[in-house]
Write a protein that binds this DNA or RNA. Structure first.
Length: 103
DNA sequence: AGACTGACGGTCT
DNA sequence: GAGACCGCCAGTC
C-alpha cells in the first residue's frame, strides 16, 4: 500500500457536495502534518480524474490551490464544485463551515 | 549523495 | 487579519 494509494482512497470517500482540506486528507491517510504529499499525490492522479474527485480537495484557507500544471485550468475545479452545489464567495473562497466534510 | 522544488499547514510577528 | 518562516515527504537534477 503506497502512500498515494491511501490518499487516493481517502479522496474517493469525500461525499458529493462536500470538500476536504489537504491537511484533513493527510490525517485520514495516516500522514499527519504532511499535507504537501497530498498535493503531490493529487498531482500524480490527474490522469484518473474519472475515479478520483480531486476537485473536492482544497487548502486550509478555503481556496482552490493553483498549480503550474493546471495553469489556465483553475476554473475547471471551481466549475466542478459549483456543479455539486458548493457556493463560492466573490473572492473565490469556499465556506468551510458549511461545506467541509466531517467523516 | 546533496540540494532544490512542490496542489500545504501551523505558528509567530 | 495578513504576511513571513519553518517543517514535513517524495521526486528530480
Amino acid at each position: 500500500m503506497s502512500t498515494y494509494a491511501a490518499i487516493h482512497a481517502v479522496v474517493c470517500q469525500i461525499p458529493l457536495g462536500k470538500v476536504a482540506t489537504y491537511g484533513q486528507v493527510a490525517e485520514l491517510a495516516h500522514l499527519p502534518g504532511q499535507a504537501r504529499l497530498v498535493g503531490y499525490a493529487l498531482y500524480l492522479i490527474q490522469a484518473q480524474t474519472d475515479q478520483v474527485p480531486w476537485h473536492r480537495v482544497i487548502n486550509a484557507k478555503g481556496k482552490i490551490s493553483y498549480s503550474s500544471a493546471r495553469q489556465g485550468m483553475d476554473y475547471l475545479q471551481r466549475s466542478l464544485l459549483e456543479q455539486e452545489g458548493i457556493d463560492f464567495s466573490p473572492e473565490g473562497k469556499i465556506n468551510l463551515q458549511n461545506y467541509q466534510w466531517h467523516p
